[in-house]
Amino acid sequence: MDSRPLLAVRDVVVRFGGIVALDGVSFDLPAGRILGLIGPNGAGKTTLFNCLSRLYTPASGDVQFEGASILGRPPHRIAEIGIGRTFQNLALFRGLTVLENVLVGGHTRTRSDFFSDALGLPGVRRQDQDLARWAGEVIDYLGLGEVARRPVTGLPFGTQKRVELARALVMRPKLLLLDEPAGGLNHEEVADLGRLIRQIRDDHGVTILLVEHHMGLVMSVSDVVVALDFGRKICEGVPTAVQQDPAVIAAYLGTAKT
C-alpha cells in the first residue's frame, strides 16, 4: 500500500474581503476511495472545490496531488496531471455534438498544433482515430451511443450530465471531482447515479471527490465523509458515524451557533 494519499488538503484558508470562507480545512483522500464532502449552504464546499480546480488560490495552506503542490499550476494545467471534473450547473460545449464534447475531454491525452491539424498530417489523424475509438468506448460505457452524433443541446438534463461524466472520463483521470452531480435529477436518476459512481470507481480505478447536497447519495456511495460548516471541518469519518455526529446534526438543523 502507498501510504501517501492521492490528494492532501492542508490547512487551507480562503478569505473574500473580510469573510473567511475556508478556515484551516485539512483532509486526506487515499487512492481508490470515494470521499463525500457535505455541509449546509455557505459551508465552503464550493470554495474548496474551486481551490482544487485552481479557480481560487488559498491565502494559506496547501493542496497536494500525488505529493506535489498544485497551487503553482494555472487552471488549464490541472487536467494534465490527472484531475478531471464535472460542473454543478452543466458546462457543456453547446455548439458541439455529444461525441465532440467527449473528444474535447481527450485534449490533454493528445498532441497537435494548428499546422499539423490544418494539413491533416498522418500522425495527428492516427492519434485522432485512436482518441475517437476510446471516446466511443466511454460513450457506450455511459449508455450514450444512441445520441453520440446529436448536438448536446436539447438532450434531457440527466443525459447531458452523463455527457459531462464521459467528457471527464475520456481524459483518464486519477481523481474525479464531481460538483453536485445529483442536482436536478429525480429520485430514480439519483439511485442510478449512485450505482454509476461506484461502478466508475471500480471499472476505471478512479478516486472520486464528491460535493453533494443529496444526503442519501453521499451516504450510500462514500467511503469517507467530510462535513464542513462555516468554513471549518466539523466531522470526518465513515458515513454511519458522520450521520450520527451531534455537530453534523446541529449544523443541518441550524441550532449549533448560539
Partner: peptide, 23 residues
C-alpha cells in the same frame, strides 16, 4: 481537428475548456 475542437470549446464555454486542459 483537435485544434478546431479546442477553439470551439473556448467559444462555447471558456471555463470548461480550461478544465479540459486547454490553454
Amino acid at each position: 481537428s483537435r485544434t478546431g475542437r479546442a477553439l470551439k470549446a473556448i467559444r462555447d464555454n471558456p471555463l470548461a475548456a480550461k478544465a479540459m486542459g486547454i490553454d
